[in-house]
Design a protein around this nucleic acid. Structure first.
Lengths: 165, 165
DNA sequence: GTCGGTGCAAAACGTTTGCACCTCG
DNA sequence: CGAGGTGCAAACGTTTTGCACCGAC
């Protein structure tokens, strides 16, 4: 939040109430929110903010490198704060939509290595691994031995799990 | 191409002229094409194919695991064939849009490891590293020592480089 | 007071779908 | 011959934009 404040100040841009509540909402939720999620969340707090403003503010947060844009193939984008915290990646269950976030330094190391080899300079990355979570795999196995197959819908609530450990 | 043919046969779906030219176009180009790119390419060959058909065929190719859907943040999707070849990833220059494809087994290994740790089963992945290619970095450095900064436009032609080696 | 921000509604964009006709097998 | 595919255009959902008014500094 302070980082956003100083980014705006440095860019000679005003900090408005809307910008504040949008950043706070994203920050406090700690989850990957779509623009609609964010609009609903703020409305629930009695803060009415137009979607255009949410898009514009998120785009600022991304420029400031305080937020990340994510695409889990749902047809719209999600955003999450990445304020200073370690760079992390995602595992997405293609059956139930569950997102598990993980952090592994080996990914950062690999990224640095390959960039050096290719002569690139890294700015950011996106690593998403798609597959089945343990519950869905169990469900699929159960179903295939029975005969029926149930393919779950992607979750719409943006539920996230951190790593168990 | 033969793989597509047998996939269709196995699914009891007909192989139409359109499906053939779409798959051939994607195959021969070897690049990451958008639906528009593909429509243009085919039109240039005198093959008129509707975009709806292209979308429907690409979706078949993705189901058959013969193609991959890619998103470089341009606002639309790109597709590329991945017929049997090793799984590869991409480095995208945020300044000129150049895409460099690379293959590193360490990524496959990491993917298997993290999946095992989290109890997931891997189906696919997307690893995209964003940054500046060596030319653009040089350009930025030159510009910043001069005063003006030129930010190039993302290339629209879907140019791809393999690794220089 | 000025520059930029905000909200709304309309536009723009990529993608999907309904439907009449056509084609593969 | 029938199941399915195709093309068009209209529909869809997300994101962007134009504009009149408002608020930060």
């Amino acid at each position: 939040m302070d980082l956003f404040r100083s980014y705006l100040h440095q860019q000679r841009l005003p900090l408005t109430r809307q910008r504040e509540v949008i950043a706070m909402g994203l920050f406090e939720s700690g989850e990957q929110l779509s623009v609609d999620d964010l609009a609903d969340l703020l409305r629930g707090r009695g803060e009415h903010v137009g979607k255009a403003t949410i898009y514009r503010t998120l785009s600022l947060l991304v420029q400031a490198e305080l937020a990340r844009e994510l695409d889990f193939g749902e047809g719209f984008k999600r955003y999450e704060l990445q304020a200073g915290e370690a760079r992390h990646d995602h595992f997405i269950c293609t059956s139930c939509g569950q997102v598990t976030r993980f952090v592994r330094s080996v990914v950062d190391e690999f990224q640095a290595t390959i960039a050096a080899e290719l002569g690139y300079t890294v700015q950011s990355r996106r690593l998403e691994i798609y597959g089945l979570c343990s519950e869905c795999r169990a469900a699929v196995e159960r179903a295939s031995s029975a005969g029926a197959v149930t393919t779950g819908e992607a979750a719409s609530s943006g539920q996230v799990r951190g790593e168990g450990g």
